[in-house]
Design a protein around this nucleic acid. Sequence first.
DNA 1: TTGAAAGCGCTAACAC
DNA 2: GTGTTAGCGCTTTCAA
Lengths: 341, 341
Amino acid sequence: MPLTIKDVAKKAKVSTATVSLVMQKNKRISPVTQQRVLRVVEKLNYRPSRIARGLVLQRSHNIGFVLSDDHFLRTEPFYTHIFLGSEFEARDQEYYILLHTIPRNFDKCKHTPLFIQEHNVDGVIIAGKVPQEIISCIEQNNLPIVFVDYCPPKGEYSAVLIDNFKGGMEATNYLLDHGHQKIAFIGGDLQHPSIQGRFQGYKQTMEQKGVTFNPKYVITSEADTTRETGYHAARSVLSHQSQVTAIFSCNDAMAIGAMQYIRDQGLRVPQDMSIIGFDDVDAAVYTNPPLTTIHVPKEELGIEAMRLMVELLKKRIKSTKKVLVPVEIIKRESVKTLKIK
Amino acid sequence: MPLTIKDVAKKAKVSTATVSLVMQKNKRISPVTQQRVLRVVEKLNYRPSRIARGLVLQRSHNIGFVLSDDHFLRTEPFYTHIFLGSEFEARDQEYYILLHTIPRNFDKCKHTPLFIQEHNVDGVIIAGKVPQEIISCIEQNNLPIVFVDYCPPKGEYSAVLIDNFKGGMEATNYLLDHGHQKIAFIGGDLQHPSIQGRFQGYKQTMEQKGVTFNPKYVITSEADTTRETGYHAARSVLSHQSQVTAIFSCNDAMAIGAMQYIRDQGLRVPQDMSIIGFDDVDAAVYTNPPLTTIHVPKEELGIEAMRLMVELLKKRIKSTKKVLVPVEIIKRESVKTLKIK
DNA sequence: TTGAAAGCGCTAACAC
DNA sequence: GTGTTAGCGCTTTCAA
């Protein structure tokens, strides 16, 4: 019942091949027939079936987007923004995204994306850390991969990454410039490249500026980087390192948790403790006081990932490319200028 | 290069028809050949191509999911949860979701989902309010629609809706039970069915309980239902209706904004003003104090929508069905018991 | 119980 | 410049 190329061909009194060529804006067709066909197309409101096209072209024009539901459901909607960025760009490029979230209790059989084996995607974007099995499966099927915000340390991969190191430097410099010297770093697993990058930015800046780096000021015992763990990390800092005047948190979620702990202790931010975050999450505007942080262009990460994927798809040869997305400091009200120096 | 039904057929020494039948668990195949084919399928790790299947079956096994990006990007990730609910259920049912977000500056030509005309979805789920043109376009293409959280007042549609009226009643009853009588209602456009439902629940409960309903306590002049408008609405209430002891906000976002205003005035929640929200948004746990609110099972809304869609797709005949999802009150700390009564 | 063959809607090589 | 036709991977009649 739905409209097909035959209907258009019949009505325009041409062959289906001609219609097909016109739809592809092929030059070989005379302007006259082209106009005739186009008029019918418009009148009938015809669009070639993506599925039929996909079959003959052997390309689905879909891109898989894989991330853990844990990441997606985070209180701070960081990955949501990345995902939406990719979605916007996909639409611009006339691709569709097939989202696949991975549950915490990953089961290889049950949770490997169907779209891989069913040849329903041309490539897949992986946001954040996912089980290695998924990556292997995609590679076995010879599909191009673009990583966003996380890239396996081993192997040659295409990826869109945050300039974590530079962000760490900027945050630390900002605190230093405001007279802070005893700066704590709170974060989760230092093995994670993002956290490590941010930490290295902090550490190296301290050393460059001739401020002694004190490992006691570094709290990275927490497994996760949530508001809860930020709360705990702040407790560690305040109870054992009372000289600390500022905290650089590896992300906003932990910074928000830390602020909560500080407030619960009857102290005030920034009067009694300065704090700077990383990510510039939605909630950072609404904290009390608003959180000074390193802005990560989340939509842009997603957009760049999609662009990179399309680029990879265009050139037939396998190649890898890394895109580093810049960050910038957003000055709000959680850092105080220290007079005593 | 990718694995096809032919490869399996050849290796199992049967025809492609037989393989196809086996894949569909068709009884007509003898257990012996069935086993033989299945073994090859397993060994080769074969899965029928979704696209080829789609072409011959005339079903894409994709479901479109349409919502405004405005809704998706809200500070409170309400629709994100609905979307993820649908995604979970889709995977369970071996469907895929094609997301399509609609920008604020909707342009009929540019922003009508491609997947409709390209026969790339079997049906579409519409979450929240979207332009009428989209709905018309889907209907013209004879695709089933399931609405979530909003349903056009006119016409017979399938929809999954929140029991807003009951939620409004529960919230109001809770305040009444805690001794409040002068209860303000703050909300956005009363024409919106959700807000209207919540408001009616409030109004009718007041009247039923013999508490005079005072229209002056109703602030619905705001166009939107954001933290900002909640802030403004609270200002209206506090400056003109100083007798009010409690506020019922039509959603959590406005409630959070209202709390901010109250705090900015040097007043405290709930000591000086009680407040109850609606939605049970992620942030409601983190407010100071945590917000008492009406919980809306957001994932479930998405799941139900997807289930309804699949149900519609199974029975060939057109039919409509409405699902009402229940809500429940979540008691936290933003409502005080009034002693004076 | 199994296989041959047609055909889903489209593209592209080739013929005219 | 345009039409004919084979075929993408699969399902499904129909025949054997």
